[in-house]
């Protein structure tokens, strides 16, 4: 069981790195998911902040990269015998074992977490894909520090939450 888990981690990680680099090789530009998503918002919003660079054209490759994400997730579920569609707010058994499983509590956590992730990613100029994978691979020191802080913030949040619960 453990072997399978770790091999899937290697295989998946390899694919993540390879496809992210393929994106750079094809387009010549770095694109993380959060930055791309910010650009996607430009299509449905007149807020000037979203309209930076060459995103005014709805037929840009950033948009299509992002549109590919749900397709990959769907393929993963269809190809795997174990994965299933889930329509819940559950954050996994470990989480549920320590934290109240009340629907409102989960909703509240997700609401707050989503907000922090969105705000933080734009303030930091990138998220896990841009800073932690591409940034570290490019030996970019600020990205390395950003990644360390992702983990510091994450560990602190989880420890505090589980301690409170």
């Amino acid at each position: 069981m453990l072997d399978i888990v770790i091999w899937a981690g290697w295989a998946g990680g390899l694919a993540v790195g390879a496809f992210l680099l393929l994106q750079l090789w094809l387009t010549g530009k770095l694109l993380g998911v959060s930055t791309g998503f910010g650009n996607l918002c430009a299509l449905g919003s007149k807020a000037k902040f979203f309209h930076t660079g060459d995103f005014t054209d709805p037929f840009n490759w950033r948009l299509f990269f992002l549109l590919g994400l749900p397709l990959g997730g769907l393929l993963g579920v269809l190809l795997s015998p174990e994965a299933t569609f889930s329509w819940t707010l559950s954050l996994g058994p470990r989480y549920d074992s320590v934290f109240p499983s009340a629907l409102w509590a989960r909703g509240l956590i997700l609401t707050g977490a989503g907000f922090l992730v969105g705000y933080g990613a734009r303030l930091a100029g990138g998220c896990t894909s841009g800073h932690a994978i591409a940034g570290i691979s490019l030996l970019n020191l600020p990205s390395l520090l950003a990644s360390v802080l992702f983990f510091v913030g994450g560990i602190a949040a989880v420890q505090l939450l589980f301690w409170l619960a």
Partner: peptide, 26 residues
């Protein structure tokens, strides 16, 4: 921003890529 992002990531176990990836499955 990184620290704020980290807190949100830890609270939910989600970041932008995986959230978009599971958009139609969860």
């Amino acid at each position: 921003g990184s620290a704020v992002f980290g807190v949100g990531w830890g609270l939910s176990g989600l970041c932008p890529g995986p959230a978009l990836s599971t958009l139609n499955t969860g």
